[in-house]
Amino acid sequence: MQTVPLKRVTIIAEAVLEERLIREIKALGAKGYTLTAARGEGSRGVRASEWAGQNVKLETLVSAEVADRLLTHLAERYFAHYAVVAYVENVAVVRGEKYT
């Protein structure tokens, strides 16, 4: 099967940020995403709000340059004050044209 090398950017963030993040990754070039509810702890151990829920895990398949844009954006806007974890992985995707 023919596969295309792409990047998967995974963002784990506080649930309050869900809508914002989705808007922003789309604006930066992501064509879609997968959202899962998540729980966990980070180095800061800050729990921001019970009502908003726990955390969300956002995954999106993007090209290398969009991945870079996403990470830069997260670093500028979120890393300082919010509980956000982000990482990039290499993936081999079928139907690569859907994601770029």
Partner: peptide, 8 residues
């Protein structure tokens, strides 16, 4: 209401 607004 306040925590959500303040967090953002």
């Amino acid at each position: 209401a306040a925590p959500a607004a303040v967090r953002l």
